[in-house]
Write a protein that binds this DNA or RNA. Structure first.
Lengths: 215, 215
DNA sequence: AATTTTTTTAAACAATCGTTTGTTTTAAAA
DNA sequence: TTTTAAAACAAACGATTGTTTAAAAAAATT
């Protein structure tokens, strides 16, 4: 019953949140299990007990993020929105997830470029699960392309555009003297939506020869 | 005179390249000095001898990348290019740097979101050096904005857009069956240029109330 | 109330971490 | 040839890494 006020959540959840916070700040490899345990106010052994090791914590964090992304795709897909609306909804929903689960998103994104042996299978599996979503997304935006190369450029460009704020967050806070609040994230979502929509339209008219028609 | 054929470069350079390759793959914190030493074919102590420690290797890698970026800014600035040309030149030059110094760029970009104590001063210094460049760049693109928030959105968006390919490179290679060669990078530069230019123009017309006129 | 299961703990595990040490080798300068 | 400095080395440093163990506490079940 100790620390109920400070740590109302269950140990498992506390480990996950403490881990996410530290991973977001320093990166997965730079964080020790003892650091997580102390921040979560649990014994070190609890991490292996609940997550079968340090890697298990990161895996769950990444899975939770991808579940949110999948939910957004499902939502848009089921609503059968038009191209522009679909794009704006996608950006808005994703920014909303980012806003509410900032550290989970940041961890999932920033750890993606790395290739540690203990995650290679896991990441391949996650990637496999989302390939179809990305394809459907591009199709929805009437950007289905015969040339695979253009797809492989556009999809990562869109994602990293939406997440640019989080990739550069420490940098942004140092350089610009701004208050990051709900109003800021509204402007952020609008700006990114516009940039992406107009930019993709520009690509459509510039690369007509590479872009196949979809009904 | 041993291993001249295999390792023609000086030890210092070999350490730097081996370090960059490993950091790019696994992230700074996940790489040990012994790993670097073995890959560079030098004794472990040589890393501290030449770079005053593991952190020194990363610092030099990041500095080299930022020197390249600074050179691009200088080039564009001295040529007094028009808005559209300036943007396309910037993207082309940056993609060119990325193409030729892939691992150095990837390391500099992927390590940016993290905040390890041994680098906090260093990163603040690097950031300070480049604030003015970013401001000048936005001004050149006739996107000088009274509202600081819009600047803080656009600048990171542009950078992460250009580097999206490298952030998702392991992912891309898994998902799409494409050959990444010079031709690919040509298409990449063109696509990103178009996306960015048309996207920024969209922002200009959508946020007229926030964007100040510059002569 | 007795038993079983789950949760939590402190301690220890072997392995690896980055760095420093003192010495040897190599090369240049005198 | 002698001297001096730079480069490279093996070995060891103390500290920390992730994980496991076996015992204790707490909770749930019978």
């Amino acid at each position: 019953m100790r620390n109920v006020a400070q740590n109302p959540k269950e140990p498992r959840e506390r480990i996950l949140e403490a881990g996410a916070l530290l991973f977001a700040k320093k990166g997965y490899a730079a964080v020790s299990v003892r650091e997580i345990a102390e921040a979560a106010n649990v014994n070190v052994a609890m991490i292996s007990y609940y997550f079968a090791g340090k890697a298990g914590v990161l895996k769950e964090i990444i899975l939770r993020y991808f579940d949110d992304v999948q939910a957004i795709f499902d939502k848009i897909w089921s609503r059968k929105l038009r191209s522009e609306e679909a794009l704006k909804t996608f950006v808005n929903e994703l920014v909303d997830v980012m806003k509410n689960k900032t550290i989970f998103c940041k961890v999932a994104i920033t750890e993606m470029p790395f290739n540690l042996p203990e995650f290679s299978e896991f990441k391949a599996e996650v990637a496999r699960r989302h390939v179809e979503y990305i394809r459907q997304g591009l199709q929805l935006l009437k950007l289905f392309v015969e040339d695979e190369r253009l797809n492989s450029i556009i999809a990562p460009a869109a994602i990293s555009l939406i997440f640019s704020h989080f990739l550069f967050l420490p940098f942004i806070e140092k350089v610009w003297n701004i208050e990051i609040n709900d109003e800021y994230y509204d402007l952020y979502a609008k700006t990114i939506s516009t940039l992406l929509f107009d930019g993709l339209n520009g690509i459509k008219s510039s690369f007509k020869n590479l872009i196949g028609d979809v009904k």
